[in-house]
């Protein structure tokens, strides 16, 4: 290990929280999705760090799966973004509040 594991964890946690802050703070659906991407990326960083720590390849393989899942998620969610935009001609998250009880 070139750096202590705790430093990797700190970096990835910071990135994760940044992503989460983006998700919470931004109202634009595209920005929300970008925040999700950041969070996923942070998780990937943790996994690679763990892989290096325990010298096992499995962590990296999980990152591969993570990427595949992310691609799937992104394709679906972007399709939804297109659909929603077509319905309301806006991407403000608050515009879609039909689930209000």
């Amino acid at each position: 290990m070139i750096v202590p594991m705790s430093h990797i964890l700190a970096i990835s946690a910071t990135m994760f929280l940044m992503g989460f802050a983006c998700v919470l703070a931004q109202r634009n659906l595209i920005m929300v999705l970008i925040g999700v991407e950041i969070m996923l990326n942070a998780v990937g960083l943790t996994l690679v760090g763990a892989s290096a720590l325990w010298e096992q390849v499995d962590g990296q393989i999980f990152v591969i799966f993570l990427m595949a899942m992310t691609s799937a998620e992104v394709s679906i969610s972007l399709a939804l973004v297109v659909y929603l935009n077509r319905r309301k001609h806006t991407l403000e998250a608050d515009a879609f509040s039909e689930m209000k009880g």
Binding site: I8, V48, S51, A52, Q60, T70, V74, L78
Partner: peptide, 23 residues
């Protein structure tokens, strides 16, 4: 740097390349 060159390559290809371009 953490010993995952393949993952690094895919990060660039898939994330930075494909996904972001899709965005």
């Amino acid at each position: 740097l953490l010993g995952a060159p393949l993952v690094a390559a895919w990060e660039v290809i898939i994330y930075a390349g494909a996904v972001m371009v899709l965005f």
